[in-house]
Simulated scan of single mutants.
Amino acid sequence: MAKLSTSDILVSDARQAYADVLLARLGEMAPGDTRRLAAWTRAIEWYLPMSVYLARRYGGRGEPLADLTQVAAIGVDQGD
């Protein structure tokens, strides 16, 4: 897994606006909407690097990094 830096996580206003719109649209979709899975997948792909960054940030505090990364990834996928 490639090491991420803070610069990898910082995003432009336009990219953040994309994420905000994506989440808003996802929230507006009915549970049975066929587009929901694609939107959910894009949201996970968008936020997964942040979860890895945060897991690494809190590593070295008594919990194995692999466990922190796994829990962070699961946290991104929660919802729906």
Rank of each mutant, 00 (worst) to 15 (best):
M1A: 14
A2W: 02
K3L: 11
K3T: 12
K3Q: 10
K3G: 12
L4T: 01
L4K: 02
S5W: 00
S5P: 01
S5H: 05
S5T: 15
S7M: 03
S7A: 13
D8R: 02
I9Q: 01
L10Q: 09
D13V: 09
D13A: 11
D13I: 04
A14Y: 00
A14Q: 08
R15S: 12
R15L: 13
Q16V: 06
A17P: 05
A17V: 01
A17C: 01
A19N: 06
A19S: 08
D20C: 09
D20H: 07
D20E: 14
D20W: 08
V21F: 05
L22V: 07
L23E: 15
L23A: 14
A24F: 03
R25C: 10
L26K: 06
L26W: 06
L26H: 14
G27C: 08
G27R: 05
E28G: 08
M29P: 03
M29Y: 12
A30M: 05
A30G: 09
A30L: 12
P31C: 03
P31S: 06
P31I: 07
G32E: 12
G32H: 14
D33M: 04
D33G: 09
T34I: 09
T34D: 14
R35C: 04
R36C: 00
R36F: 01
L37Q: 13
L37M: 09
L37P: 01
A38W: 00
A38V: 11
A38K: 04
A38D: 15
A39Q: 06
W40Q: 11
T41K: 12
R42A: 15
A43Y: 11
A43D: 04
A43W: 10
I44L: 07
I44R: 09
E45D: 14
E45H: 06
W46A: 01
W46I: 12
Y47A: 13
Y47W: 11
Y47F: 14
L48M: 14
P49F: 01
P49S: 06
P49C: 05
M50L: 13
M50A: 15
S51T: 04
V52W: 06
V52D: 13
V52I: 09
Y53K: 02
Y53H: 13
Y53N: 03
L54I: 12
L54C: 11
L54H: 02
A55P: 05
R56F: 00
R56H: 15
R56G: 13
R56Q: 07
R56M: 01
R56E: 12
R57L: 14
R57Q: 15
R57N: 09
R57S: 05
R57A: 12
Y58V: 15
G59C: 13
G60P: 02
R61T: 07
R61L: 13
R61S: 05
R61A: 10
G62R: 03
E63A: 11
P64V: 02
L65I: 09
L65F: 03
L65A: 07
A66C: 01
D67Y: 03
L68P: 03
T69W: 02
T69R: 10
T69Y: 01
Q70W: 05
V71W: 05
V71N: 08
A72L: 08
A72I: 00
A73E: 15
I74D: 14
I74P: 00
I74A: 14
V76Q: 04
D77V: 11
D77L: 08
Q78W: 02
Q78H: 10
Q78E: 13
G79V: 10
